[in-house]
Design a protein around this nucleic acid. Structure first.
Lengths: 223, 223
DNA sequence: AGAATGTAAATTGTCAACAATTTTCACTGA
DNA sequence: TCAGTGAAAATTGTTGACAATTTACATTCT
């Protein structure tokens, strides 16, 4: 059921749209972590006044994408290696919960969908198609989180993933880690298909922890 | 090390202070869940214009305390029983992580502090002093979360606790559950003192899950 | 040359007014 | 009686202007 154009405009206020746009600008890397955000410049760019811009930025402050310093303005949030580790740990806990809930609640059709994700990634790994793998991998994780049917969890988790993109503002996955990561996917899927919540919790948590370790192994300044 | 008055004023902007004030008004129950928030009224109350009020509300929207409906304004967020359960599940996962981290990182002095919390609550339970128990219990939980030394975790966790106060806007703990709750505290403390992360994870997660079940047992409309 | 100082420019913080939308409520007609 | 209608009032959304603060930079002094 798709909403009509007018419905969308009704449900989306200007600052809400702005939020998505500014988010896009930041996550695209145009504004780098640590950069100061000039309100006037943004207002000019979108052809509106500073009021809605500030509202959108205040909202993004709460969700951890920007930081406000009184009288100095908004800055794109910068994540240190330690902070990124912290976020990864929280993400691991939440993803574990998502796996557990999914194991409890998944439907037969869900299991079929899950299997097709795994098969598609199998193919991508076999043909060393990194681009496809990253794309499917992303959808796979979204599927798991959405399948937990817990709006609070989904919101928090997605917020953390956005925050992590601020760390080094670059890809969170490297080609070399593709196979190792996918082996974990198999263990996760097995637990879900077996509808084993405890095992799903463990495998899903471990998957994010491993991703953290793989990423941190590539940086030198980890204290 | 306490900040000087001028330091505090430097670090706190008007909308930031407003946020705390409005939060206080909401959590105190003066504005009930579902109530519409009149911007003009708040502006008049604090003697300022609507701009900073709106900024503060936008921020609170992101953290889940209010909801904005385009052209209709801000409403105090209302949590259904199902939504409260969802939040509890997320909180349980985060608190489990806090326990795990604390078990890994707690100092000797931390362990002494932990023991004194337990002793104080033992005394409160023994003398059936519910008021004291609630107060110490709150500080005990804050201590655990802070001890995890993970800012992201602490922020998310505290946000969820605030959200839960919107459910029935009333006490999340009843006198009858004091003893049951405290038995769990002992198990948690044992795991921490033993510096056993896995057991800490399990006992802390279970503690919040049990709190959820105790609360939900008192309401009838749980689907 | 380099640090310190003072002034101008730029930027953020706040406000009051206006436009757009929703809500209220008296009125009408079946 | 009550659903429908339509203006009036109230409320939200947005803007441009002004005040407060910070930043940039040229000047001075050591």
């Amino acid at each position: 059921m798709t909403l009509s154009a007018v419905e969308i405009l009704r449900s989306q206020s200007l600052p809400m749209v702005l939020e998505q746009e500014i988010e896009r600008v930041i996550l695209s890397g145009e504004f780098a972590p640590g950069d100061r955000i000039n309100e006037k410049e943004l207002a000019l760019r979108f052809g509106i006044s500073r009021g809605p811009i500030r509202e959108a930025l205040r909202s993004m402050d709460s969700s951890g994408l920007v930081e406000q310093v009184p009288n100095r303005g908004f800055f794109v949030r910068q994540l240190s290696a330690e902070q990124a580790c912290d976020v990864y740990d929280v993400r691991a806990a939440l993803f574990g919960l998502a796996g557990k809930l999914l194991a409890e609640r998944i439907t037969e059709e869900g299991i079929e969908k899950l299997k097709s994700f795994i098969a598609d990634m199998d193919a991508a790994v076999a043909s060393d198609d990194f681009e496809s793998y990253v794309k499917i991998n992303f959808e796979f994780h979204e599927f798991i989180v959405a399948g937990g049917r817990n709006a609070s969890l989904a919101q928090q988790y997605l917020g953390l993933v956005k925050q992590l993109r601020l760390y080094r503002a670059r890809s969170l996955m490297h080609r070399e880690s593709m196979q190792a990561s996918h082996i974990e996917h198999h263990a996760m899927a097995e637990a879900i298909i077996a509808r084993d919540p405890a095992r799903a919790l463990a495998t899903h948590t471990r998957h994010v922890e491993a991703a953290k370790e793989r990423l941190m192994a590539t940086v030198t300044d980890l204290k």
